[in-house]
Nucleic acid binder design. Structure first.
Lengths: 112, 112
DNA sequence: CTAATATACATAATTTTCTTAGGTATATAA
DNA sequence: TTATATACCTAAGAAAATTATGTATATTAG
């Protein structure tokens, strides 16, 4: 996570995408899943994750259910119908962004 | 530029990368180059570009020379030695970021 | 037994980095 | 002569992180 600054703007998209793969996930589970999928490269801080989850819920993209598991409180999040729509759009936008960014980053220097 | 929010954090890297391809560029030229390379997808606003250029200069990554061309003032930017080092590091970080992000965005849903 | 680590949630203050909106000025094309 | 393109700039505000806390339980190690 040397340069987690690069995460800016993509956190919501990551959350929506992960939730589109299962019925529900809780916050801590999301941090672990992201760490695993990126081979330790992306480390979600709680200060970023929880406010993002709350915002997505406030916007009606996520629904929650709280449970006690093994004596500890867990808050499960799942995609609403609106959230599923937004997931598709946001992931598509991010993939386009990434594709265009690579065009720049991989550009060969002009005849210098 | 429907969702230029995705650009957050990558602007400095884009500037450094473009400058690594030639001896020097001026602000307006950078906006046009980015638009062209991304087929109109990335549109740099002046409110983001100029402060970013000034910051990179203040950090000693860019050097400037001002000229009057065709009756209009231009400010050319070029990479310093420090800027060239940073360019390599930042582009490498961004490519790693993009690669890991794609791992998440392209992940197949688990056996749901 | 007890201290450290992992699990699990949350918020507040601050910083970074944009967007939006404005300002100045010259050259060229309609 | 009016709009568009070129060319620079800044300020106010918003968005989205970082950093630093705080609370609490379960498990593992010494």
């Amino acid at each position: 996570m040397k340069d987690s600054k690069l995460l800016k703007g993509t956190l919501q998209t990551i959350i929506l995408k992960l939730l589109s793969g299962t019925d529900r996930m809780y916050g801590y589970e999301i941090t672990q899943q992201v760490k695993q999928l990126t081979e330790g490269e992306f480390v979600l801080t709680e200060g970023a994750l929880y406010p993002a989850l709350h915002k997505l819920e406030a916007e009606g993209l996520l629904a929650t259910e709280s449970e006690i598991v093994d004596g500890r409180a867990r808050k499960y999040y799942s995609l609403t119908a609106k959230g599923k729509e937004e997931q598709v759009a946001k992931v598509q936008d991010a993939l386009t962004f990434v594709e265009k960014l690579q065009l720049i980053l991989n550009a060969k220097p002009s005849i210098s």
